[in-house]
Design a protein around this nucleic acid. Structure first.
Length: 511
RNA sequence: GGCGUGUUGGUCAAUCGGUUAAGACGCCUCCCUUUCACGGAGGAAUGACGGGUUCGAUUCCCGUACAUGCUACCA
């Protein structure tokens, strides 16, 4: 019988969750759902120096916002709890010790200074950087180079030590990656990675193998930056005697900066003016806040859809996918090998597409906070009629790419425009027009039917009566009602703001 | 420097050896709209470069270049 699919997202709680991280979550989630498997969230908090308060909760909040809920997590628990590596600390030592006993790993007593010295002393030329490996390990202080008595003595004295893997000399280690196919490494070129740190915590290398085994992970997705250390992990699976249970690997491509080169970083977002994190992230130490897609006004569905298409595509022309559709169409084999430059313009396009497809009632709820904030900012009492907001949302949604645009595009429905772009009509303005509008405004009083159609008909007839071209009057009317050259049809606007307000706005224009 | 990975238009990308090399974003032109958008029509790449293999290569192989990742008691 096939093993049940189990995947995991294993972030370090060190800061905000960026695009690449969310995409890794997404691919994990899609794969799990597609194969009826489990999606586990495991927190890799083994580095006490980099631990950031609140980061774990923040990550879970991001997953929740995106609608990518894990089946097992520190919060939810599950059959393999605990899901926080710091709470699993006691587990790892046993396996590290097992490796030492079997001769696959060794104790190393070197101090930071000794390591630094080795790296300068063994420097072969200007450019090469020596590493702790088969060429240097016998020159260091470890259980391979020291006599057994010395080792025992050091251990008894409680000398701080780490446990390092002993990389074999000449082995070609091959892994079959679901995205890249076969990738080979020469074991003698890989260094003796630290497995267990002096503080008793495992490094990523040990922890990921032990936990993936214990949690019965069948498919391991992670960023491409892990590919170089994959041979260490494969060896560990073998040395621990678990080779038949090793998950299938998939190393995901990186998300790159839109301009220049390199992978996308927090800095790029600040520099180029777009978010890099899923939600706002405030560093508790510096107090600095980095913008998030959520706060910028993205719909989570659009954000997720955009991310899915960054490095994967279904092979068809379809671009808009619900999460359910993504689950149906997703295949890890169609994930790209190469990194993709992030394009914020395309992200905005996705958001606009989603806004257009969202029903007015939902949109009104989403837009409400922005409308209220806008009103408060303009000193108007924020008492928004939800019924009106729904109709407004329907009218302006195709010109909104981000949620705050609902205020930009619709503020004049809720408050008399503060700024009137008189310059737009000043040149062609004259007394005749001034009079026309004054008279039309008065005639509005007698309208029994107040709707777009009646207004337009009435306006057209009135213009004809006065011998004026309707076309010359449309822009002025818009400026009076809206304040600028934008927005939905003028008569639809007049219908919504009502008779009284329409008359008031027309009459208040003086130039 | 070493090792790994990658390279189709400005960007995301289809093509699993034979097509006029899809489509989307962005850009430009036009239509619709006497606003702005949405929507619609159209315009712009010969596939990093050089060798092979093949009747035939963007698609397979090799080299070069470039890009990118790793090279921590960080993940």
């Amino acid at each position: 019988m096939e093993k049940k699919v189990r995947v995991r997202f294993a972030p370090s709680p060190t800061g905000g969750l960026h695009l690449g991280g969310v995409r890794t979550v997404l691919y994990n989630y899609l794969f799990a759902r597609k194969h009826g498997g489990d999606f586990v969230l495991r927190v890799e908090d083994t580095d006490q120096n980099r631990f950031v308060e609140g980061a774990e909760q923040y990550i879970m909040d991001c997953l929740h916002w995106c609608g990518l809920e894990p089946d097992e997590s520190p919060e939810k628990g599950g059959p393999h709890a605990p899901y926080r590596q710091s709470e699993r600390k006691y587990l790892y030592y046993e396996y590290a010790q097992k490796l030492v006993d079997a001769g696959y790993a060794y104790y190393a007593f070197d101090t930071t200074h000794e390591l630094e010295k080795m790296r300068t002393d063994f420097r072969k030329d200007e450019h090469s950087v020596p590493q702790y490996d088969q060429n240097t390990r016998m020159h260091m202080r470890n259980s391979l180079s020291l006599s057994q008595e010395e080792v025992v003595h050091l251990l008894e004295k409680n000398t701080p030590y780490v446990i390092r893997i002993k990389m074999p000399e000449h082995r070609t280690i091959t892994l079959t990656d679901m995205i890249r196919g076969e990738v080979s490494f020469d074991s003698s070129l890989v260094d003796d990675k630290v497995l267990l740190k002096a503080d008793g915590m495992p490094t990523y290398h040990l922890a990921v193998v032990v936990d993936d085994y214990l949690m019965k992970i069948t498919h391991a997705f992670r960023g491409e930056e892990w590919l170089p250390s994959a041979p260490v992990h494969i060896l560990l699976w073998e040395y621990l005697g678990w080779k038949q249970d090793m998950p299938e690997w998939a190393h995901l491509p990186l998300i790159l900066k839109p301009d220049g080169n390199g992978k996308l970083s927090k800095r790029d977002g600040e520099r180029l003016g777009f978010p890099v994190f899923a939600m706002n992230w405030t560093d508790p130490k510096t107090g600095d806040t980095s913008k998030g897609f959520r706060e910028m006004g993205f719909l989570p569905q659009a954000f997720v859809n955009m991310l899915a298409m960054l490095g994967w595509n279904p092979g068809s022309e379809q671009e808009i996918f619900s999460l359910q559709e993504l689950v149906e169409h997703f295949s890890i084999e169609r994930v790209h090998k190469g990194g993709a430059k992030f394009d914020f313009e395309k992200s905005k396009w996705f958001n606009n597409q989603y806004i257009q497809r969202t029903d007015n009632e939902t949109l009104a709820k989403l837009a409400l906070p922005y409308i209220e904030a806008g009103l408060r900012k303009s000193g108007v009492e924020a008492n928004v009629d939800m019924d009106l907001l729904q109709r407004v949302a329907g009218l302006v949604k195709e010109r909104c790419t981000l949620l705050p645009d609902f205020w930009e595009q619709g503020h004049f429905f809720f408050a008399t425009p503060a700024a009137i772009d008189v310059a737009a009509i000043k040149e062609k303005w004259n007394g005749q027009k001034q009079q026309f509008f004054a008279e039309w405004a008065d005639s509005l009083e007698s309208y029994t039917e107040w709707n777009e159609k009646a207004l337009e008909t009435g306006f057209t007839e009135f213009a004809a009566q006065k011998g004026l071209k309707k076309g010359e009057l449309m822009l002025p009317l818009r400026i009076m009602l809206v304040g600028g050259k934008f927005g939905p049809g003028v008569f639809a606007i007049a219908e919504l703001i009502g008779k009284e307000e329409t008359m008031k706005r027309i009459k208040s224009l003086h130039l």
